[in-house]
Design a protein around this nucleic acid. Structure first.
Length: 565
DNA sequence: GCCGTTTTCGGCCCGACTGTTTTCAGTCG
């Protein structure tokens, strides 16, 4: 699906160029909408183009469809090539600076011949920026600070880091019976978060904003008004919005987004003759909903839609026709199928694992230690594996009354030649075999994974992910092919939710589901906090529209056994 | 540029905050 990504990026850049050229704003949003639609596609754009179905994608019409076809056929888009050649290199990145929009950019380009970030820094320092119309001391200062902020923060926060920061702020503000919660992309549980949005309801708005903008460790206050505050905290922008109780539901809906989801809802609202904003649903001057999110959706003739689905990727249509998925929930999860013990590189003893899992009410946990050749992760020799299994047997016997079963598992390495790191007779003795690559990242990843999947002892394939991989150059895996291979070999795909290893993301989940592939949630936990990681994994699954039956670790133990061996 | 149960043109979601100017344009989400 690399072409999907490339095309989405081109269309987004086109939108920026159009914006710089002061084109019709609706044309700009048309490009952005098309880009978003392609980015969220669970199908390969090349396949759709081949089937002549491009224009069936909402947001893609004749003109953009032709550009897509041109790109797929020739590798370039003439209109794009021309547009980009008319725009000075480096000017587009200036649009990422908070406080500089298209009008200002055009102005500084024409009056001061700014073409790069360095140019901009120069005119700030020599004072010429301040001489422009509508440009005063404060605006220059804000732009200066925004540049510093841009330099300092690289990219977006991973969801788990964003959650920790957001919860910190909520804890700090949450005094005096306040209603406060996380909204925005964090509530939708996106893998990465640009900024943190919080919504609150309070009798004393002024005092809450005051507390908010005076939090310790604040780097900068961007805005503070009567109902809204915006700060930079630890390199991340945090927005707080305060509304009255009777508008809380509509405000929560509004600030949860996504933008595209909201735009479509407003459209539906208009079609019904209503007006929808963050204060409620209005029929003329009469407010007909707003206190809860359910009310808002119901007023528009829709059932409540889970935040994780609100991306305008078909959820509104599904809601209309009563076909929303019944998303998998935490209470459906019967166990974790990928945990490391201190036999290999984890810190938890087998007893610790049982103890923690029993708190969550799990029925089983698979102990999936590394195999013998992964020396840096204390991979288990066959001897140590046997000893670990004996301990598991002992613990299971003792724990009968607790109803938790430890499964004998392994995360067996796929070696450089595609063979597995334990002989078949050893693998046969195990309950669950996960195969994964930890070495030879440059060589034939897909081929080696396929050969592992063909081994009847392999139940689950976990693909290489995360820090380990991204730090090695030349790593290349085709996830499209992985999904096809899993399908042809009837192998379960692991959704690995260890922080930073979430490249088997929601879009891939959706695609795998459409191909009828079963998946498993494996947290890859090495220390305390299994549940935290499981929640992350669950959010990927939910964003991928997965239902209970799509995940094998929602099965009770007996059914799981049938499924695996 | 896209779109259509007020269809092939004329719409396109809606409001808060800032800074500069004095009534509002620009930016953001």
């Amino acid at each position: 699906m690399t072409k999907n990504k490339e095309l989405a990026e081109i269309l987004e850049k086109m939108a920026k160029i159009l914006e710089f050229n002061g084109e019709n704003p609706f044309k700009i949003s048309a490009y952005l909408k098309a880009a978003g639609a392609i980015r969220n596609l669970s199908q390969d754009i090349e396949k759709i183009a081949k089937d002549e179905r491009l224009e069936e994608i909402p947001g893609i019409g004749k003109s953009i469809a032709n550009k897509i076809k041109e790109y797929l056929n020739t590798g370039e888009i003439k209109a794009y090539k021309k547009a980009i050649s008319d725009v000075p290199e480096g000017i587009l990145e200036l649009m990422d600076i908070q406080g500089i929009g298209p009008k200002t950019l055009r102005l500084i380009y024409e009056k001061l011949h700014i073409r790069s970030l360095d140019d901009l820094r120069r005119v700030i320092n020599d004072g010429s920026l301040a001489t422009l119309p509508l440009m005063g001391e404060k605006r220059v200062e804000n732009i200066k600070k925004s540049i510093e902020f841009l330099d300092k923060t690289k990219g977006r926060l991973l969801i788990n880091d964003a959650l920790i920061l957001a919860e910190e702020v909520v804890r700090y503000l949450n005094k005096d019976g306040l209603i406060i919660e996380i909204a925005g992309s964090l509530r939708r549980r996106k893998e990465t978060i640009g900024d943190i949005d919080l919504l609150a309801s309070s009798d004393n708005k002024d005092r809450l904003i005051e507390t908010f903008i005076k939090m310790p460790d604040i780097e900068r206050v961007i805005a503070s008004g009567a109902t809204k505050g915006s700060i930079i905290l630890k390199g991340t922008q945090v927005d707080l919005r305060i509304v009255d109780k009777n508008s809380y539901g509509s405000a929560l809906q509004y600030f949860t987004g996504s933008k595209m989801h909201n735009i479509k809802l407003r459209k539906i609202s208009r079609e019904k003759g209503f007006k929808l904003n963050e204060y409620g649903v209005f029929d003329g001057d009469k407010k007909i909903a707003g206190e809860t999110e359910e009310d808002v959706y119901n007023a528009l003739g829709l059932p409540w839609i889970p935040p994780e689905l609100r991306e305008d990727t078909g959820e509104i249509e599904a809601a209309k026709s009563g076909k929303l998925p019944n998303l998998v929930k935490m209470e459906d999860i019967k166990g974790d199928l990928h945990v490391h013990s201190n036999y290999s590189d984890g810190t938890l003893t087998l007893e610790d694992i049982v103890k923690e899992a029993s708190v969550y009410g799990y029925e089983y946990v698979s102990v999936s230690d590394h195999s013998q050749s992964v020396k840096y992760a204390k991979g288990l020799s066959i001897d140590r594996l046997k000893r670990r299994n004996e301990e598991i047997d002992r613990i299971n016997k003792d724990n009968n009354k607790k109803n938790i079963v430890l499964l004998k598992g392994t995360e067996v390495d796929i070696l450089r030649d595609g063979s597995l790191d334990y002989p078949d007779d050893i693998l046969e003795e195990l309950d669950i075999v996960i195969a994964a690559i930890h070495q030879g990242f440059k060589n034939n990843i897909n081929e080696r994974m396929l050969s592992a999947m063909k081994n009847p002892n392999v139940d689950i394939i976990a693909h290489p992910t995360g820090r380990v991989i991204y730090s090695r150059e030349g790593y290349k895996m085709d996830i499209e092919r992985l999904i096809n291979d899993a399908k042809s070999t009837d192998t379960i795909l692991e959704i690995n939710s260890y922080p930073n290893r979430m490249d088997f993301n929601d879009i891939n989940c959706k695609k795998a589901k459409e191909n009828g592939i079963k998946m498993s949630l494996g947290t890859d936990t090495h220390s305390k906090g299994m549940m935290k990681y499981m929640e992350l994994g669950l959010s990927i699954a939910r964003r991928g529209w997965l239902e209970k039956e799509d995940l094998i670790n929602t099965y009770p133990l007996e059914e799981l056994k049938d499924k695996l061996y």
